[in-house]
Amino acid sequence: MLEAAGLGLSAGGRELVRALDLSLAPGAFWSLLGRNGAGKTSLVLALAGLRSPQAGTVALDGVALAAHPRGELARRIAVLLQDEEPDFWGSVLDYVMLGRYPRSRSAWSRDEEGAAAARHRLAELDLADRDAQTYRTLSGGERQRARIAQLLLQDADILLLDEPLQHLDLNHQAQVMRTLSRCASGGKTVLAALHEPGHAARHCDFAVLLYDAGRASLGRSSDMLTQANLEALYQCRLEAAGTGSFLPS
């Protein structure tokens, strides 16, 4: 169980999150919605233990994140960052295999079990035939899927994803959401910062809405993702779109 208590976050002199209490239980799939600059990334980083909050604590199973050894934390929490250095020289399989680092870090032995698992993850994300291709030559959306494959290979209990759907086409957006949903049904905790309320409504059990000036509200997706709430969240009028607005079935 990953719990934030009284969490306060700010960046560049702006208050992003104020006194947020959030507990992420196993088996739950959370969406995290908010305008650009609302603090989604800061919240993901704080929950992953990569940024110290200005106030409050984040605890894993009742113990503050900072008190967990890094190596152990890496086996419990996996995080997909929004930006990443693209300068990786190896193959797609090599790239995905870096997700095995928390579990197998020997420079000598071949990790056949890990390679098989990595191929399985690649297949799950429609990259089955790309394992030998140079990572740098992948398209943006293919890279994003390879990064998610790497994250899944880490096989942590808690998955925190910052905009997992960026660069993805409609079909692969749905595929990634289904994959994450399966992870949650399998007992993992999943939280994804999204810009797609439609996907959030369909796949996520719960939602965190980050408003401006540190306000946040959270609850069941069905209660949270109402037209009124989303209009307040994005500060614009919304209407049910007709032609051209589809979600994959």
Binding site: L50, R70, G71, E72, A74, L81, F88, L98, Y101, P102
Partner: peptide
């Protein structure tokens, strides 16, 4: 340097990602 080679491989992904994968 060789003893750190696996961690250096991970460091290519950036400092935050490397930290999240358990690299000191």
């Amino acid at each position: 340097a060789f003893s750190q080679s696996a961690a250096l491989d991970v460091l290519i992904l950036g400092e935050d990602k490397a930290r999240s994968l358990g690299v000191a």
